[in-house]
Simulated assay, not measured.
Amino acid sequence: MEVYLDNNATTMVDPKVFEEMKPFFIEKYGNPNSLHRFGAGTHPKMLEALNYLYEGINAADEDDIVITANATESINSVIKGIWVDKILNGDKKHIITSEVEHPAVTAACKFLESQGVAVTYLPVNEQGVLEASAVKEYIKEDTALVSIMWANNETGKIFPIKEIGQICKAAGVPFHTDATQAIGKVKVDVQDTNVDYLTFSAHKFHGPKGVGGTYIRKGYTLTPLLHGGEQMGGLRAGTVDVASMVGMGLAMKLATSPIALAHEEGHIKRLRDKLENAILEIPETIVIGGKENRTPNTTLISIRGVEGESMLWDLNQNGVGASTGSACASEDLEANPVMNAFGSDSELAHTGVRLSLSRFNTEEQIDYAINVIKNAVERLRGLSSSYAYAPESHKSAL
């Protein structure tokens, strides 16, 4: 049996989405910016897709949603756009983010630091969540942007976006949230949360790879990251990938419907908890960050005495796909930065295994995965020359 439990890295394209995309490869292939019927023939479905995106995050008609290649491009567009608009061409010189952001946010902020921008990286608490009060404490008169993720890609922990949005609004500071790991798992509402910029990627909610979006609240602007033609109202140059845009729109509609979100909070959460609780029956295993305030599909578990990379090899040999954390950093064998941010010891920092489910996982698959994981732990601990089960010596692992 094959069981895919790495849905925070990417998801299977929903078959309904794939069928919606197919005509735009061969039948309706015109450039949407062309004036002839071949180009114009793409417009109805593009408009429909855009409407689905607006509805999915509750954007207002006056707001902008820009189609991009992925969340990484969207994130860079926001952070570097703010850099140009408010730092290079203004009097701001400070950005606030967290220590556990996706590498796209962290790397963009590191680049700005190399250009003389001051960046504050706020730590998370013992539960792996950034406290809104910390944002308020560090906002200064020269703060140009606050960028805090909606949900963490490794732990699934949900951050207090509404409270942070209120703080930023009161201080007159633009607020960006990376909602890549939240859409399709929890309700995302830009109006309710005072979010000014929001970024996402279709392949995280059963859409195609290679397409994402940037939400921009009315009254806010960004210098484009890509210059060229007048596509997307001049906010993002380049011919739009119509098939991917159409697919992302339908994927958004399917993932954010009340029925879909209830399924996540009910059935998917139940399967995640079943998997997690079975693993926690193994001595010296813990859930990183605890069980509260998470997306319904995600768990990051530390198994003392078992290297994360070794565990993944065993799981892969038995048809189970999982991750040690962010897929965007999967080739980096350094200690997991999220584990480090939690203050874990040097041994535990290498033991995290992330399991992330989707609506396409079944009860039978979870039962199989539980058996595989338990067998792998027994085998790998048996091979270890340093591991010995001694509960008294590891009471305060985290």
Rank of each mutant, 00 (worst) to 15 (best):
V3K: 00
A9K: 00
K16I: 01
E19R: 11
M21I: 03
I26Y: 13
E27W: 04
E27P: 03
G41Y: 08
G41C: 07
T42R: 10
P44K: 12
L47D: 13
L47M: 15
Y52V: 00
L53P: 00
N58C: 14
W83H: 15
K86R: 14
K86H: 11
I87T: 04
N89Q: 07
N89F: 05
D91S: 15
I95Q: 02
A108I: 01
A118P: 02
V119W: 02
G128M: 02
G128F: 06
A134E: 02
E137P: 00
Y138D: 12
S147D: 15
N153T: 13
K157L: 09
F159G: 05
I161K: 04
F175I: 12
Q181N: 12
A182P: 02
K185G: 03
K187M: 14
V188I: 09
Q191E: 14
D192H: 04
D196I: 07
F200H: 13
H203G: 08
H206T: 03
K209G: 14
I216H: 02
K218V: 07
T223A: 06
L226C: 10
G233M: 10
A237P: 07
V240Q: 08
V242Y: 02
G247A: 11
L250R: 09
L254E: 10
I259R: 11
E265G: 10
G266M: 01
G289K: 04
G305H: 01
W313Q: 13
D314L: 15
G319H: 03
S323D: 05
E334I: 08
P337Q: 06
M339L: 15
N340M: 13
A341M: 01
D345G: 07
F360N: 11
E363A: 15
G382P: 04
A390M: 12
A397N: 05
A397L: 10
L398E: 01
